[in-house]
């Protein structure tokens, strides 16, 4: 697979963010990251990037349960922004709620639904189909 230029991690759990970055670095998946602690901050940062046509992340790891703006709300806002780039979005959550899984399927932009914890092999395997 080809290496991802820029990955975006939206999660309020710093341990997961640390782990995820490490997995992607070690797995040689990606070396450059944008990290936001919740949907709102991510949206605020991504919106100007999109409009100014600066470099956008190729891949987003999105947590659902977050303070300020959760994953679903972020998705609802984010998909409204017209964007030429096809960004791969993976939901990563510790929620086993079938409701959440079903909901994820309703978003065409969401490419996959991963249940924490993740590991490099696992993630690499999944991303092989995308990149």
């Amino acid at each position: 697979m080809k290496k991802i230029d820029l990955a975006c991690i939206i999660d309020d759990d710093p341990v997961f963010v640390f782990g995820a970055k490490k997995i992607m670095e070690l797995g040689n998946i990606c070396n450059s990251f944008m990290v936001f602690p919740n949907g709102a901050e991510a949206l605020n940062s991504l919106k100007p990037i999109i409009s100014s046509k600066q470099k956008l992340p190729d891949f987003i790891l999105l947590d659902i349960n977050m303070p300020v703006m959760n994953g679903w709300d972020f998705l609802d806002e984010f998909i409204k922004i017209p964007c030429e780039k096809n960004i791969t979005i993976y939901i990563v959550t510790s929620s086993l709620d079938p409701f959440d899984m079903e909901k994820a399927k309703s978003y065409s932009n969401v490419n996959n639904y991963l249940i924490k914890p993740i590991n490099s092999n696992n993630l690499r395997e999944k991303l092989m189909n995308e990149f």
């Binding site: 759990d13 997961f16 782990g19 997995i23 510790s94 924490k116 914890p117 993740i118």
Partner: peptide, 8 residues
């Protein structure tokens, strides 16, 4: 989440 983090 915590258990997942520990495993990870």
């Amino acid at each position: 989440s915590h258990a997942g983090n520990i495993e990870m």
